[in-house]
Amino acid sequence: MTERSASGLVLENVRISLKGRILVDLSLGVAPGRVATVMGPSGSGKSTLLAYVGGFLEPAFTAEGTVLLNGTDITRLAAHRRHVGILFQDDLLFPHLSVAGNLAFALPERVRGRAARRQRVEDALIEIGLEAHGERDPATLSGGQRARVALMRVLLSEPHALLLDEPFSKLDATLRAQIRDLVFAKARERELPVLLVTHDPADAEAAGNHVVSLSSP
C-alpha cells in the first residue's frame, strides 16, 4: 500500500516500541493534498506515531524507520526544522498573546518588515472570516473561532505536512463537520499531505477512507 513518490509524506518501516513491546510497525505513503487516517483503540500508539513523525517522541520510546517529506529524509531533524505542523484536540492558542499575536508567532521570519507581517496576518484573518478580531484575547473567542485561528496559525507557518491528533473530537457535532471540511479543504488547496489520528469513523469517511488500523495493545 506504500505509494512511492518524491512528493508527499512517506513512512518506511517505522517501528516504535516501549520497553520491548512493539506499538507501531508500518509503512505508509500520503500524497500531497490527501489524508491518511490512523485508527485504533486507546493505547495502540496512534499519538506515538504522530510524535515520531513530528519529532517530539518521548525518550522512553525506541523507534526506527525513515520519515521522508517531499523526498527529504527528516527522520533525524529537530522538530522545529521539519516543517511539520500539528493540531491537537485543544486549540492551544497561546493565552499570553492576542489573536494576531498568535498568528504572527507562526509567520516565518522570512516575511520581513512590520507592515508586511501585519498585512499577512490581516489577510489570514480575512481568510477565516475573523477580520477585526486581531486584537482580541483568544480566551474571548467562541470554540469554532478558536479552532479556525488554530488552523490558520499552523497554515501560516508554511508547513510541508500536517499532523492532526483528534482535532475535532472536542467540537460539537455541527461545528465538527464544518471545521473538518475547512481543514481538509485548506490542506488540499495547499497540497499538504495529512496524517489524521481519530476515533470517529465519520472523520475517516470525510477524509477519503484511506485508513490504517493499529491493533489493540
Binding site: 513530528g54 522545529h80 497561546f94 493565552p95 507562526a106 516565518p108 496559525r153 499552523v154
Partner: peptide, 24 residues
C-alpha cells in the same frame, strides 16, 4: 503540547523558552 505546537510552527527550543513557556 504548547511547546509541541510551537515546534511545529518552527520555533527553536530557545525560542519556545523565551516566547512561550516563560511568558505563560
Amino acid at each position: 503540547r504548547y511547546a509541541t505546537v510551537a515546534k511545529g510552527l518552527g520555533s527553536s527550543p530557545t525560542g519556545i523558552f523565551w516566547r512561550v513557556r516563560l511568558p505563560m
